[in-house]
Each structure stands twice: as structure tokens, then as C-alpha cells.
């Protein structure tokens, strides 16, 4: 089981802030493919991953990163702090 969290318009498009999913995805990109195949709202949110950022266990990461041992995956648009 892996915890997935969504922020900003990704959260709004998918319609929930977090969920636990059972997955065998080896990498973030594999997980994104699984999610895209679920429902239209996921396909819409993940249509262009170049517009998204990913964090693994609260550290910024890359879409080709492995998921082995990861407990929490976060998807969000580029940050706009400050």
C-alpha cells in the first residue's frame, strides 16, 4: 500500500486530497500510468506530467525514480511560495 497525496489543481481535478492505493508500479511513471487508466479525472490530471512535480516521502524527486520502500507519493504543480 502506498499513500498518494495531491495538491492545488491536481487535488481539485482528481477530487480528493489523498488516497491509499495498492500498486505494483516500479517507478513513479508506472504509477502515473496506472492512475491514468483508472478514470477520466485521473487521465485529465496526469495528461501532461511536464506540468507536474513529484515528491517521494516529502523530498522532491523525478518521474523515473523507483517506488521501492516509498510510503508517500505527492503530486502537485510547480510551487508558488514567497
Amino acid at each position: 500500500m502506498i499513500e498518494i497525496v495531491y495538491f492545488a489543481w491536481v487535488r481539485e481535478r482528481i477530487g480528493l486530497p489523498r488516497e491509499r492505493v495498492e500498486t505494483t508500479a516500479a517507478t513513479v511513471a508506472d504509477l502515473v500510468d496506472e492512475l491514468r487508466g483508472r478514470e477520466e479525472r485521473y487521465a485529465a490530471a496526469f495528461a501532461d506530467v511536464s506540468a507536474l512535480r513529484v515528491a517521494l516521502d516529502q523530498e522532491l524527486s523525478e518521474f523515473d525514480a523507483p517506488l521501492s520502500g516509498v510510503r508517500e507519493v505527492a503530486f502537485f504543480p510547480p510551487m508558488t511560495g514567497g
Partner: peptide, 23 residues
């Protein structure tokens, strides 16, 4: 660094609607 590496997202709520501020 706070602007683009700290996980904050700004949304502007106006009289006509709301939109996420883009980086």
C-alpha cells in the same frame, strides 16, 4: 528558493472567479 522549492501554492480569488497562480 522559498518561491519555487518550498511546497506552497497560491490561489487568487477574485470577484469573478478563482485561479491558481502559475510559476
Amino acid at each position: 528558493y522559498l518561491k519555487s522549492r518550498a511546497p506552497f501554492w497560491k490561489k487568487e480569488v477574485t470577484q469573478t472567479g478563482a485561479h491558481w497562480v502559475e510559476a
